[in-house]
């Protein structure tokens, strides 16, 4: 039997494929919803930073025998909180501080990894290993996914206001600080559960591209959420299937499909902007 000529629907017969698809879809949906908030808040770099910063947390957790996800979550959130603190107490801009802290933490993680007797595979952390997920991980990802999606979608109006005009949120006596940390915690959580699927280098794409693509399609935030999730899920499923046929890195294929959809959307948007030029200002 030739692996590369099987029709794609037969791939669903493999259990590892079904599990990979479930994890891929859940991770894509979570990251897509979050990406809409991140790009509007100007936090694209924050996803990059937090994802790199989780490395020392993972290595330390494995050395101490703790669940890896706990170490990763603490380290990721720690990076975001620390850079907020340094920014407030210095004259530096947030992206500068963030850049120093996350690269520092990533470096620390690499050094710890080379010195520590752990059973971790560095390339699984960096690039993910979605075809090797365990049944427990499928459950863990799905439960966290449902939790994250329901919290974020239920509070989406407040979170959107936080991204749009934080001062107004504070003037209305909304819990702006709590919402800020809610968004950060959700970001750290999504990165932690996405590590298995796409790895910490490419999770950044999952946290930016779907939202950016959706923004090109619509001026309504609710529709933006819908489009982002659809784009992310389609990319995830087709990326996983494509990677099977080309024997390529799964995460890379997913990200490539996302980038391709973004490019097509961008071209479509330019075309529309050109056709309606003068009739209506296009953002």
């Amino acid at each position: 039997m030739n692996l590369y000529t099987e029709p794609w629907w037969e791939l669903f017969g493999y259990e590892f494929m079904r599990e990979a698809l479930v994890v891929g879809v859940v991770v894509a949906a979570m990251a897509a919803v979050l990406s809409c908030f991140l790009i509007l808040k100007g936090w694209s770099l924050m996803g990059d930073a937090v994802s790199h910063a989780v490395l020392p947390g993972i290595v330390l957790a494995s050395m101490l025998g703790l669940p890896l996800a706990v170490g990763a979550f603490v380290a990721g959130l720690g990076c975001a909180v620390a850079s907020g603190f340094v920014k407030r107490h210095s004259r530096l801009k947030e992206d500068t501080v963030l850049g120093v802290i996350f690269t520092g933490m990533f470096g620390l993680g690499l050094v710890l990894y080379s010195k520590a007797p752990t059973v971790l595979h560095l390339d699984h952390i960096l690039f993910g290993n979605i075809l090797g997920v365990s049944r427990a991980q499928v459950w863990q990802t799905s439960l966290i996914g449902v939790g994250v999606l329901s919290v974020v979608l239920a509070r989406r109006r407040d979170l959107l206001l936080l991204c749009f005009d934080e001062r107004h949120a504070r003037a209305l006596a909304l819990p702006a600080t709590a919402l800020h940390y809610l968004l950060l915690s959700v970001l750290a959580l999504v990165i932690v559960v996405s590590l298995q699927a796409v790895g910490l280098l490419l999770v950044v794409a999952m946290l930016i591209t779907p939202g950016a693509t959706a923004r090109l399609w619509t001026d309504s935030f609710d529709w933006m959420l819908v489009v982002a999730v659809v784009v992310a899920v389609v990319s995830s499923v087709s990326g996983i299937l494509i990677s099977y046929y080309v024997s390529g890195s799964t995460a890379a294929c997913v990200v490539l499909v996302q980038a391709a959809i973004f490019l097509l959307s961008l071209m479509g948007w330019r075309l529309r902007a050109w056709r309606f030029r003068g009739a209506r200002r296009v953002p």
């Binding site: 509007l40 239920a154 109006r157 407040d158 959107l160 206001l161 991204c163 749009f164 005009d165 107004h168 949120a169 209305l172 006596a173 909304l174 923004r215 619509t218 001026d219 309504s220 935030f221 933006m224 953002p283």
Partner: peptide
């Protein structure tokens, strides 16, 4: 460039007196 309409922005003025789900 934020994806909100005029209506959305003015409605944000009411969030402080709206229920949990706004």
């Amino acid at each position: 460039d934020f994806p909100v309409s005029v209506w959305d922005v003015v409605l944000m003025g009411r969030y402080g007196s709206m229920n949990f789900l706004r």
